[in-house]
Design a protein around this nucleic acid. Structure first.
Length: 277
DNA sequence: GCCCAGGGAATCG
DNA sequence: CGATTCCATGGG
């Protein structure tokens, strides 16, 4: 890792990292792009303003301590994406997907925030998911100074479905409350899922109303860094049908979730791609 | 198996 | 422009 402390900022030099591709690819919903191309957002109880020029990133008003303790892991800077992409690229479709968006990284997000965020994602589109989560934080999250932390388990578990009506979350409001209550009571222990085999984790998460196979898989991947988790949304189903009818190559499957990030973005964004099905 | 439940975004005519 | 479609889950 290469970085310097510059006044109140951290300046990081990092290859295989692009803000648009990482923060605006459907894994995180709390970052907004500013007019100058930088991003502002919150993760756990840390607010961040980050800008970039090529491989140089500036984390504004971030102490070295906070960077090492939090953002370094959050942006998955311990993982060698160059090696991963090299391995994936033995497959020609994956090679194209990796070249199309070489700066995607899998964020290591908080499991509680991820659980609620992906419950909200059910049958929903990204702009609206962001709006609902933003209102959730404004109403019930801690004020960090004009920007709001994600509400705690204690806070949400004490609320009723009616309390969530200003969020305009629709039928998902009751799922949010159910999730909060089951996590608060300990019936679903998020910390325990971290140490569980992935199949057990799926079972735990699916105890919650509003968590089906797709949402559970997203939470395992994005909230628990289970890199073999493989969420199949409509886009990924299309990718699998068209390009991998017999499944992913074996050298990819142990990191199928990370591969999925490249494929998902490629399928959604690249105009050249032509699905026959 | 099929329809429906919020609501906003994307796509179509 | 208005109309239609999309979306993941659970309940009837």
């Amino acid at each position: 890792m290469e970085y310097i402390v510059d006044g109140n900022d951290i300046v990081l030099y990092q290859e295989d990292f692009n803000l648009d591709q990482t923060l605006d690819c459907g894994q995180a919903f709390r970052f907004v792009k500013n007019a100058d191309g930088s991003y502002s957002g919150v993760a756990s109880h840390y607010a961040l303003h980050i800008s970039s020029h090529g491989d140089e990133f500036r984390l504004h008003n971030v102490s070295e301590d906070e960077f090492i303790k939090f953002w370094y892991d959050y942006f998955d800077l311990t993982t060698n994406y160059k090696e991963l992409k090299k391995r994936f690229s033995q497959d020609s479709i994956m090679e194209q997907a990796c070249k199309f968006a070489p700066g995607i990284r899998l964020l290591r997000q908080d499991s509680w925030e991820t659980l609620i965020s992906f419950i909200i994602s059910a049958n929903n589109n990204i702009p609206r998911i962001k709006g609902i989560i933003s209102r959730l934080c404004e109403y019930y999250g801690e004020d960090l100074g004009g920007i709001y932390a994600f509400p705690t388990v204690e806070m949400l578990s004490a609320l009723s479905v009616e309390d969530l009506s200003p969020l305009r979350a629709g039928f998902r409001a009751k799922y949010i409350i159910d999730a909060a209550q089951r996590v608060h009571s300990g019936e679903v222990n998020l910390d325990a899922i971290t140490k569980m085999p992935i199949e057990e984790g799926r079972g735990e998460l699916m105890k919650i109303y509003g968590v089906g196979p797709k949402v559970a898989e997203c939470v395992l991947l994005f909230g628990f860094y289970k890199v073999e988790a493989f969420p199949l949304d409509i886009w990924m189903k299309r990718v699998m049908e068209n390009f991998y009818p017999d499944g992913l190559p074996s050298f990819i499957s142990s990191h199928a979730g990370i591969a999925q990030q490249y494929l998902f973005h490629y399928a959604r964004t690249c105009a050249d791609i032509n699905f026959t099905k």
